[in-house]
């Protein structure tokens, strides 16, 4: 993993922007108490573009920031976000970075579900709420919502930048 200062700054600014969006837009995007995890989408995009280690670091920092603003244990979201980012990066390595919309959808769904499932194992400690019930009521809807919002990024015009799944798919078609 190469660290380019200019690029790092660019992603850091994007990260802050997404964090602001996550905090400020949450009330507007809320559907029956469920919010999309915009930071996770950002982390997966970084993972896709820069690899599993970058995703791991960004996921850890993003989770740390998220935990700082919540009542949960500090480190829970860092653990879950960095873990799913790392394994998403591993999966993308094997796919040679060629991902279409359905692949992107599945990737987001699995990572969103995995992240919330991991964090729920800590969050529910000492709680009378069952894991299955929590997963059904919170984890699955949040994962689906995050996936839908993340898929919009994939098909949106501003998603068409070099290094993204969309452009690489087009690049491969062009080479053929």
């Amino acid at each position: 993993m190469q660290i380019v200062p200019g690029e790092t700054l660019k992603y850091a600014i994007w990260g802050v922007a997404v964090l602001i969006a996550q905090i400020a837009l949450s009330p507007l995007l809320e559907i029956r108490g469920i919010h999309p995890d915009l930071l996770l989408i950002y982390v997966i995009v970084i993972t896709f573009k820069k690899g599993k280690y970058a995703g791991l670091i960004i996921g850890f920092i993003a989770g740390f920031a998220q935990d700082s603003l919540s009542l949960e244990f500090l480190g829970v979201m860092s653990l879950s976000k960095s873990t799913v980012a790392f394994w998403a990066g591993k999966w993308l390595e094997n796919r040679e970075k060629v991902v279409n919309l359905s692949g992107w959808f599945v990737l987001l769904l699995i990572t969103a579900f995995g992240q919330d499932f991991i964090s729920s194992l800590f969050i529910l400690q000492g709680s009378h709420i069952g894991v299955f019930e929590y997963v059904l009521r919170n984890v699955v809807p949040t994962a689906v919502y995050t996936t839908v919002i993340g898929s919009l990024w994939f098909i949106a015009p501003f998603g068409n930048v070099r290094g993204t799944a969309k452009s690489q798919t087009r690049l491969k078609r062009f080479k053929r």
Binding site: F60, F64, D67, F73, L74, G75, V76, S78, L79
Partner: peptide
Amino acid sequence: VPWLAAILLALGLIFSNDNTQVNAIRAGIS
């Protein structure tokens, strides 16, 4: 190794949530 290190660091944070210094950092970031 980086992933395992991240997990250990995160677990370290989780188990030191009562630590005043960790809470001070958390409050500062927040």
